[in-house]
Amino acid sequence: MRLTMDQVIRYQTEGCLIVDEVLSAADLQPVIEELNEVIDQRARQMLAEGRLKELHETEPFERRLALLQEQCPDIGKGMDIADYLGDAIFALLGHDKLLDVVECLLGSEISCNPIQHVRAKLPWKSKTGDPQPSYFENVPWHQDCAVTTEDSEASEIITFWMPLVDARAETGCMEIMPEVFKRGYMTHQASGGTTIVPEQLPDVQPVLAECRKGSLVIMNKYTPHRGISNVSDIIRWSIDLRYHKTGANSGRSYQPSFVVRSAKNPDLVLRNSSEWRKLWQESRNAPQPSKVHRV
């Protein structure tokens, strides 16, 4: 799938775009199976340690982790892309269907940015009577550029967010402020999660970014967005990736970017997941910066 000219113009005008059904259920199934395997391995280890009493083996992907976490809150920790570095998620980073869309906005020299996540937004159940979920259950208003370093200000880094289940208001989809990206970077604070400082938050009516499984929400790095509460009875699984033009500063120079498409030098494309894992291991073993991003 390639974007139409109208879609490109809409993205350039609004700083966001929803593209329906870029990836099929079959395209996403290997990633889901890989996540299921990670969850199952953790559950069995915790059962052996006496930290779980029930494996919930027959529960579907959309429910199992939530049921396991009710028994052991730690089971979901360390499940990000850079933590488990699976073959299926690596294949997704360079999937041709996804890169065809990326190319329409960035051109044919594309690198995968190291800022990449898989998120399981669990159904929110207040245990304290608080009217709102915590930061980790409900990401506050922010711009993605806030978690990059200042030396990437000139880089065009684009976010590609895709749900692994239908993302609706009920399941906690995102809210977005269209056109606000034109104002550039807004000051953020770390209190309560990385978020735009209240006095700079625009008085703009946000829009719901509802979309079906396998669809894409594409955002400019300056587009304010947030997550809303998942009040359904399933987990809102999603993946957010970032891409930039090869040679541009990634905003995370201490972590590995890699070429996923190149018309000029196709031999530079990284196709080996073992090499990808090696890059991440080397980055972890290297000295870490005292400040990882601007906030």
Rank of each mutant, 00 (worst) to 15 (best):
N113H: 13
I32K: 09
E37M: 09
G86Y: 07
L122N: 04
D144E: 15
F160W: 06
P140S: 11
W161F: 01
M5V: 13
C211H: 15
A169K: 07
C72P: 00
P224H: 00
E70D: 14
S108Y: 00
I18V: 15
L122H: 10
L241G: 03
L122P: 07
Q45C: 07
E14N: 15
Q41M: 09
Y254K: 00
R271Y: 00
R2V: 01
P131A: 15
S232H: 01
W280T: 05
S253Q: 10
M174W: 06
S283Q: 14
W141S: 10
S274W: 02
L65R: 01
E70R: 13
L68F: 11
K264G: 00
G192T: 09
R183E: 14
W161V: 00
I81F: 13
P140D: 03
D20E: 15
L35C: 13
L35E: 14
G251W: 12
V231T: 15
Y135N: 14
T223N: 11
T194W: 08
D80A: 12
E109P: 01
L3M: 10
H225Q: 07
Q41Y: 05
N272D: 15
G129K: 05
F258Q: 06
E275D: 15
D267G: 08
Q189M: 11
S155Q: 05
S229P: 03
Q255W: 09
V197K: 13
A25P: 01
D20H: 12
Q12Y: 06
E153F: 05
D151C: 10
R252C: 11
H142I: 13
Y243Q: 02
G214N: 11
Q71N: 06
N265R: 11
V139D: 02
R226H: 06
Q255A: 11
A66C: 04
R10G: 02
N272P: 03
S191N: 13
E49S: 14
L279E: 06
W237T: 05
A248V: 04
G76M: 07
L47S: 12
G214C: 04
S262W: 00
F258V: 02
I81V: 14
I81K: 00
M219F: 12
L92C: 07
C72A: 15
G76I: 07
N272S: 08
Q205C: 04
